[in-house]
Computed example of a mutant assay.
Amino acid sequence: MKEPGLDGRHRAKNGEIQRKRSDTLNKNLSKPIPQFSPNTTLGKMRARTGKISEADVRRAAAKLKK
């Protein structure tokens, strides 16, 4: 059963919403972030922007110079 409001994420048994893994490549995201190369990992994008969630990384990347 799909839980509303999770944006494709799922909950662990303890109720926490799990984030995407740090080794996920930009090209494998549902909507790749154009400010980063396709082979950049989500972990590197998080480190560069200082944000954790994919949505926050996307917003911070829009403000970065390429």
Rank of each mutant, 00 (worst) to 15 (best):
S22R: 07
K51I: 10
T49E: 12
E3V: 15
K65A: 01
K2C: 12
E54Y: 10
K51L: 12
S30G: 08
P32V: 03
R19E: 14
S30R: 08
R58P: 02
S37C: 00
N14M: 07
P38I: 05
T24P: 01
F36T: 01
R48W: 00
F36V: 04
S53E: 04
L6G: 03
M1Y: 13
K65D: 02
A61L: 12
P34H: 06
S22P: 06
L25W: 06
I52H: 12
L64P: 04
E16D: 11
K2S: 15
K31F: 12
R46I: 05
N28T: 14
I52C: 08
N14T: 11
F36W: 13
K51W: 12
S30M: 10
D56S: 13
I17D: 07
N28L: 11
R59C: 05
R46E: 02
D7H: 06
K20I: 13
G8A: 00
T40Q: 09
H10C: 11
K2T: 13
S22K: 00
I33G: 09
K44F: 06
S53W: 03
A60T: 03
E16V: 12
S22Y: 02
N14Y: 06
N28F: 14
K27M: 02
G5A: 10
L29K: 02
R9K: 07
N39I: 00
I52P: 01
R59A: 03
P38Y: 06
E3I: 07
L64I: 14
T49W: 13
L29H: 09
T41F: 04
H10P: 05
H10G: 14
A62P: 06
R58Q: 06
G8I: 05
T49R: 03
N26S: 03
M45F: 05
T40E: 09
K63I: 10
K27V: 03
N39G: 05
I17S: 05
D56V: 04
K65S: 07
L29R: 06
M45Q: 07
T41W: 04
L25A: 13
R21V: 09
H10L: 11
T41V: 03
A47T: 15
V57W: 07
L42H: 01
K2G: 08
K44P: 03
Q35W: 10
R46C: 01
K63W: 05
D23A: 02
A62Y: 13
A61F: 09
P4M: 02
F36A: 05
K65Q: 04
H10S: 13
I33V: 15
P34Q: 10
I52N: 10
K13Q: 10
D56F: 00
M1W: 03
E3Q: 13
K63R: 15
K31E: 14
K66D: 04
R9Q: 11
P4F: 01
H10W: 11
Q18A: 08
K66T: 08
V57T: 12
R9A: 14
E3M: 13
E3R: 08
S22T: 15
P4W: 00
K2M: 14
L6K: 11
A60F: 06
D7T: 04
T41I: 08
R11I: 10
S22E: 14
T24G: 02
G15K: 08
D56A: 00
K51T: 11
A61H: 12
R48G: 05
E54P: 00
K63S: 09
L29Y: 05
T24Y: 11
E16S: 11
E54I: 15
D7K: 12
R48I: 03
K44N: 14
G43K: 09
